[in-house]
Simulated assay, not measured.
Amino acid sequence: MAVVVWIVEGTWPACVDAARAHAPEDADIVLLHVTGQEIAGVAHGAFAGLLGRRGSERDPGIEMEHLAADSAQHLLRKAADRLGRPCACTERTGRIEREVVSAAQDADLLIVARDGDRSHLGPKSLGPASRFVVDHAPCPVLLVWPESAPGLSSIPAPPPPPHHR
Rank of each mutant, 00 (worst) to 15 (best):
L76A: 08
G84F: 13
P138K: 05
A46W: 07
C15N: 07
G55K: 07
R20A: 15
Q73P: 01
H22G: 02
R98F: 03
A103D: 06
D115T: 10
D70K: 06
L31V: 09
A23Y: 01
S71F: 11
P158F: 03
H163L: 13
A21L: 11
S71Q: 07
V8Q: 14
I62D: 00
R131P: 07
R92W: 00
L76D: 04
I96Y: 01
A48F: 09
I39T: 09
I96L: 08
A46L: 13
A137P: 12
L152A: 14
P123R: 08
S154H: 08
S119V: 03
D17S: 10
D135P: 11
P24M: 05
L51V: 00
S153F: 01
E65Y: 00
L126T: 04
V100L: 12
L152K: 11
A43C: 08
G94F: 03
A80S: 13
G10L: 07
A40Y: 03
H163C: 03
L143N: 09
G10Y: 02
I62N: 02
A129H: 15
A2I: 11
D26H: 10
I29K: 02
A23F: 01
L83R: 08
S153E: 15
H33L: 05
D135M: 10
A113W: 12
P150T: 07
E99H: 03
V8A: 15
E9M: 00
P158E: 10
C89D: 00
A113T: 08
C15R: 01
W145Q: 12
R98Y: 00
C89G: 00
G151Q: 06
I62W: 00
P150Y: 08
A88Q: 12
C89Q: 05
T35P: 02
G49S: 14
I96E: 11
V112R: 06
A107H: 05
S102F: 09
A113F: 14
S130Q: 09
T35C: 11
D26S: 13
W12P: 01
R58C: 00
G45D: 06
G45V: 01
V101N: 07
D59Y: 10
R98T: 06
E25N: 05
E97P: 01
A19M: 06
H44T: 06
A23E: 03
A72V: 06
S148T: 09
A69E: 02
I96M: 02
